[in-house]
Design a protein around this nucleic acid. Structure first.
Lengths: 199, 199, 199, 199
DNA sequence: AATGAATGAGGCTTCATTCAT
DNA sequence: AATGAATGAAGCCTCATTCAT
């Protein structure tokens, strides 16, 4: 029974992929406020098809975030393998910033509405993916010990607005300066006692 | 010097204040996307009354931001006068964070759409108000020298998302931890060369 | 008793005149759709004052039309006095066209909403003023005999749209051509039997 | 050649027709200023449905005018085929007048705002449709030679106000008299030199 | 007596979502 | 299974008129 490959399933999968591609692009370019119609149009499918695969716009956002999360996990894994621990960690943060800089929708999810849109499970995976490189860096002594995974997520969120600076209508990349600034705070030598995270 | 604005009639002033109060509350609670009708309803006035004082929603946002800016400038002035320079500077940043924490609309203006919604003049005053305490702290040697006013605004923006954390629908105040973290980066001892701001 | 000149009456008259002046200009430039607020502003009075003198916007339109009607009657009188009857009649029509060409509000009253906005009395006077020059011209044999005063008003209305032609946003004066055309129809030699006016 | 528009789905076509019918009726009865909501209500559809077919009220007006233009072109074609050239031409003008008499919206388009609401293409087609019967009538010697297509449009516009006469709230059809009057001006025998159209 | 503040219905348009085809 | 049609609440804004000051 299981062996039957239903041919329509293939179509469905293709359409799903199309929608995801279109949504990825649209969200990246225009943010989460982009219309459902626009996404369907870009995907070359009807709105109904889109809603068949994703019961709600929120679900679509979740799915797109899932993709991004997968990439984030990939990036996190890479950060666990480099020779130079410190360099790998910096590269990790750097990539995270680039992801926000190049993806308005991702920035939206991370820093704004997002908190109420992604699933608890995704939230947990996000935290886990952040934890790995952090712990490795801490073990190597290049990052202060009093930071936890949640903190790294917050640092990530702090990077967000710095990737959104505009100067006369045109975007400017100021974030590398602020990533460097944040790195200054992450060094063990900079550490002063932090108020604990509540609860 | 004084803009020649004749004082509003008593009732008008009262209603204007009501609208501003309602807008302040509504923006603070629900962000800039709150509807004009909702604000008018909260103020207990008709939509037309609101539009008499503020020809556009944007103008209303500007006016609310103006109020906040005045408070911000007051806070900035206070930060120039305390005995303990370092302590005054920290208190300054602290107040800034509280302002964002308690005001979703302010957070919106600062970190999001805001750049395109407030006037250039307001933007400049915001920068100026940030510059004073920063320079004083730098002169006293408690803050690293390579930071400029724009950087303090970015630090302000970085604080934003940390004031927006939710845990199960309820807001939680994590931001003091991240303010402390950012302060670690601001200390002269933490300084490493930063990439310059472009242009 | 009657001899007392109440000083406030003078103010009132002045304000009334101001409003009329402003309305005349505003209606002439922008048509009847111009806002009441705009008129009050131009007059330098409050909206309430305007409404004290004219209970309704329609009443204001009537008053302005009254002015125009007075001028129209003056023009009509002049047309009764010239040496050359035919020439005087043409000048009369010409002036009527100019009045519409230079006064958007007048054109509006005449050709559009107006019919339902002016008083029956004004309507009658308008007709009477048209009748004089017409009858004189007919008596002199320069205009066909089967036209009545109402017809001349309709000819006047026909001229209206020809004074409103635009070419690429800019107004162009095509109406002299169409006045000449209409004059061709008014000559006795051109006459063929016309369907009678109903009622 | 054919614009590749896939045929509308049955229900969509039905609703589109309903909207057009409702708009036609509403515009005809109440003019172009009738509200979009009113049209949707008459059509028995939601406002959104209307906006799906016509992205803007202006577009709806254009579409209605398109229908009228098609009818006008049909009428124009008929005027090219009758045996009696003069009679056909008169019938043509007669129909044009009826169209305005029965359709306030059409009258609005033609004589008022319309110039800025219909497309340049429609404007050109209107002119072309007017030109055919005119030239035929001129070739047959029943209409004076110094008239051009634009003049016929102006004659059409002149007819407009004559179809809008009211007597005590009720419309009265006076226009046939004025059409006859205008025809008197169009006869070759009536011709006197006309001022040229500027530019 | 004059002012201009207040009103609120009405105007056009957008968009997430449901549902008939 | 796919489509796109339909919905209607909500959004921002205008304006003639009434009414408190």
């Amino acid at each position: 029974m299981e062996a039957h490959v239903r041919p329509l399933r293939a179509d469905a999968a293709r359409n799903r992929a199309r929608v995801l591609d279109a949504a990825r692009t649209a969200f990246a370019e225009a943010g989460l406020d982009v219309g459902v119609e626009e996404i369907a149009r870009r995907a070359g499918v009807g709105k109904g098809t889109l809603y068949r695969r994703f019961p709600t716009k929120e679900a679509l956002v979740c799915a797109i975030f899932e993709d991004i999360l997968l990439e984030f996990e990939r990036v996190s894994d890479e950060a666990l393998e480099g020779e130079e621990v410190g360099q790998a960690f910096v590269a990790f943060l750097n990539t995270c910033a680039v992801m926000q800089a190049e993806n308005q929708g991702f920035y939206d999810v991370v820093s704004r509405v997002g908190s109420q849109v992604i699933t608890p499970d995704q939230s947990a995976r996000f935290r886990t993916a952040a934890a790995g490189p952090l712990k490795r860096a801490q073990a190597a002594g290049v990052v202060r010990d009093d930071l936890v995974a949640e903190d790294l997520l917050q640092i990530f969120r702090m990077l967000g607005p710095t990737t959104r600076e505009f100067s006369g209508g045109e975007p400017v990349d100021h974030w590398p300066r602020y990533l460097a600034f944040l790195l200054d705070a992450m060094r063990p030598a900079a550490a002063t006692p932090l108020p604990p995270r509540p609860e």
